[in-house]
């Protein structure tokens, strides 16, 4: 009987160079199955570049080994599509469903998992709030029944209630066994939800359990300035 791998992904000595600029240098970390990894760091530290390297969208050195049978759902920070086009939620989800050869009913189930009402299907994506649109993209990613979700700042530009709903959605997916890799600027979310944290900056990288590695001194090194930090008494679920 084959041994089930312990990690969803193992990254060894990953480096990425864009033109003459070295964006990521010699990164090594692993993400256990059904855990969550938060990636933090200042703007320009290479968080999105890391995600793009993990999905094979940009050339890199070193190795990225996904567990056998991994299905990746990716929610990028920005879309190439003009949101003012007459494109509805149904247009996007149907296209993804057909490509995944997913069974009927999968769209309704995905909407339920992210807490969206079915009427979102008939709405133009340009009329959705930031939070609704991000949850629609998560539902879109769920259609192919992913084992790993990569979320690039899913709460950026979303109001506070929308952020809470998104955080609940991510936490629920994790309890359902989905491995979550999340880029976030919100350190309180990192402390509340992340199993591990990877911090990126030009001079300093760190990896480990948030409460152990995210000391005020390390955060000051990563962000280049002191970071105010209030840690609530909650642990990842």
């Amino acid at each position: 009987m084959p041994v089930k791998p312990a990690n969803a992904v193992e990254v060894d000595h990953l480096s990425v160079r864009l033109g003459d600029v070295e964006i990521l240098r010699d990164l090594s970390f692993s993400v256990p199955l059904a855990s969550s990894l938060a990636v933090i760091g200042p703007n320009g530290s290479g968080k999105t570049v890391l995600f793009r390297a993990l999905i094979g969208a940009i050339p890199h050195t070193g190795s990225v080994r996904w567990a056998p049978g991994t299905r990746i759902g990716y929610v990028p920070q920005k879309l190439d599509l003009d949101r003012d086009l007459p494109v509805t939620g149904r247009d996007l989800l149907l296209a993804r469903m057909r490509l995944a050869s997913a069974p009927p009913g999968v769209i309704e189930r995905a909407l339920t998992r992210v807490g969206l009402a079915p009427d979102i299907l008939n709405k133009l994506v340009g009329t959705l709030s930031g939070g609704q649109f991000q949850r629609l993209l998560v539902a879109f990613a769920l259609l192919a029944d992913p084992t790993v979700l990569l979320l690039d700042e899913p709460t950026a530009g979303v109001d506070e209630p929308g952020q809470e709903r998104m955080n609940d959605t991510v936490r629920r997916l994790q309890t359902e066994g989905v491995t979550v890799l999340l880029i976030s600027h919100d350190l309180s979310v990192v402390f509340r939800f992340a199993t591990n944290v990877l911090c990126l900056s030009r001079e300093h990288t760190c990896f480990g359990i948030p409460r152990q590695v995210l000391t005020p001194e390390i955060l000051a090194e990563v962000y280049g300035e002191p970071v105010g930090l209030i840690v609530h008494d909650q642990s990842p679920g």
């Binding site: 999905i55 969208a57 990716y74 990028p76 190439d80 996007l92 995944a100």
Partner: peptide, 17 residues
Amino acid sequence: RDRLIMMFLSSDIARTV
């Protein structure tokens, strides 16, 4: 049609598909 929608939505999403 569906593959074009994916590619123009996000080339990165299209790659993961």
